[in-house]
Structures are given as structure tokens and as C-alpha cells.
Design a protein around this nucleic acid. Structure first.
Lengths: 146, 146
DNA sequence: CAGTTTATGCCAGCATGTTGTCATTTGACT
DNA sequence: AGTCAAATGACAACATGCTGGCATAAACTG
């Protein structure tokens, strides 16, 4: 026992926990001036990538979170003017969440800080390694996301 | 612009968020019968790997969390009999956190479910990929952990 | 079409994490 | 020794996530 594979894997798991925390801290620091937090730019990002808007449970499914958690964030963001709820022709109760003009500006501002950050942090990393890592992470996600 | 590297990286970041959530859910499900939660087995794991016990801020540094968060968890775990506080010869106020017998049993039980889980989830993954991914994740951790 | 299952909104309670503040102890430097 | 900065404990406020329960709307099924 104590196969190197097992040790590698457990080490990877702990490292993912650690990296997750650091990435959230990075994101929060990066978007502080924009008045965003990690929970908010995650939501903005998901909506921006959709065309016609998404329902709250839909956003939750994309992010892999509970609909209740997303609902609370979107409620606050609507109050803050970043999002708005639109009537959903497909569903009487479940409204569509869309970006307001302010929300769109926030998304653009987000990209303006995020892109240089991404470039800066990958300068010295070979693209093959990024590719292998991403595919491995995706593989694990599929394994656990059942 | 839209360099593939940048897209890969941002994709990796989002995937790490997702995987983090799934891993916590996996861990919680796995240790449910043991009466543990993710926050608790993280702490137990760190203490078990140390010899003479650790202080609360020491655990926090290892986990990359705030000492307050760790303090609250350890307080509850002491109440529950998993941990105990020991006088610290090196410090008048900052006590050492150690595993009780019950805590040690919990750690052993944890390993008994964790090891097969690790083996099972790496069966079809080449060791080189695990290695590349782990090194990349560590590299990012070092980059952000300043 | 009627009945059942699933999806959604809403509310509550709780776990886990963060930051901030203040007092006290440690430790390091002159 | 004296001073000052860093570390620690304790407490509070808050953000983010989870689950559970309940009512209603939608979707499915016979």
C-alpha cells in the first residue's frame, strides 16, 4: 500500500482546497474596486455567457451550487441594480435573470482586470501543462458530478 | 488576444471552483458515518501529521485559513471529545491542540474510507497526469500565497 | 384528462469562512 | 532594561454556502 498514486491524489485534493481559497482571495482583491465579490462575479460571468438570460435554478446548475444560495445573491444584486428579473415566457413563476446596463459595465470592467491577470499568471507555464491539468480536473468533476 | 493560454487558464480557475465544491461534498458523504464534516477532518488530518501537537494559528497556517475559523472548529471538537488542549511549554497563552483517543480513532476510521476512495478514483488516470496537475497546482499556490 | 412526480419560490436554521477590533503576551531590537 | 511590532485569544458582524420544509406551478404518465 501507500501507492504513490494514492499519495499523489490525496495531495492533489488538499492542494485543490488550498488553491480554491487563494483563487477566491485573488478574485476578491482584483474586483474590490468594482464593488464585486467572488459570489457576484461568478453569477455575472454565467449570465454574460448566456444569450437570453437564465433562471435562478439554471445558474445554480451551471455553478454547481444550490438554487437557494444563488437566489439570495441574485436578490441582493437586483437591489443593487446589477441584475434585473424578466418575465419568462416559458415559465409562469421562474423569472429570467439578466444583466442591467450597470451589470454589463461591471462585466466589462471585470474582464479588463481579469484578462491581464490571467496572462500574467500563465507567462511561465507551458500550455501543455495547463491542458493536462484542465483535462484532469474536468475528468474528476465528471466522476464526482453524478 | 483571446490567447488559448488565457482561455485555458480561466477555464481551469472555474473548474477548480467546481471541483472544490464536489470534493467537499464527496468528503462529507464519505465521513458522514464517522460524525465528521469536511472542516473537521481537515483539522484532524493536520494534527495527525504533526508530532507534538500544533497551536490554533499553526493549524490555520497549514490550512491557509484564518485562525478564527480554526479556533471555532477546535473549540467545538474539544467539546465533542475529539481534541484536547494541552499546556504549551513554549507559550503561556497559546495552547497545543492534540488528538484524544477518540480523535485518533476518528483519524484511523477516516483513513480506512479515504484510502479506498483515493484508489478507486485514480484507477484510470495515468500517474504522469496526476503528477503534472499536482505540480501545476502547487506552482499556482506558491504564486498566490505571498 | 386525472393523478403523480418534478421543479421552483420562499422561509428558516445552521456550518463554515472572512474581516475587524481590542487586550495581552511574545519576541526582537536598540 | 525598555520599547515597539508581531502573534494570539476572544468576541462580533457579516458573506457564502448547505439542508429541510412547505406551497404552488409545470411536466410527465397512465
Amino acid at each position: 500500500m501507500h501507492s504513490p498514486k494514492r499519495m499523489l491524489f490525496l495531495d492533489l485534493v488538499l492542494s485543490v482546497f488550498r488553491l480554491n481559497g487563494l483563487l477566491i482571495a485573488e478574485g476578491d482583491a482584483m474586483t474590490e474596486k468594482l464593488g464585486l465579490t467572488s459570489a457576484r462575479w461568478k453569477v455575472i460571468g454565467v449570465i454574460a455567457l448566456s444569450n437570453a438570460g437564465l433562471t435562478v435554478p439554471g445558474i445554480a446548475r451551471v455553478l454547481g451550487q444550490s438554487r437557494q444560495a444563488v437566489q439570495r445573491i441574485t436578490d441582493v444584486m437586483v437591489s443593487d441594480g446589477l441584475l434585473s428579473y424578466q418575465r419568462n415566457p416559458q415559465h409562469k413563476r421562474s423569472v429570467l435573470v439578466t444583466l442591467t446596463e450597470e451589470g454589463k459595465s461591471a462585466y466589462n470592467a471585470l474582464r479588463e482586470v481579469q484578462d491581464p491577470w490571467a496572462v500574467e499568471n500563465t507567462e511561465d507555464i507551458p500550455i501543455d501543462e495547463l491542458d493536462v491539468a484542465l483535462r484532469l480536473v474536468r475528468r474528476l468533476i465528471n466522476k464526482f458530478d453524478k
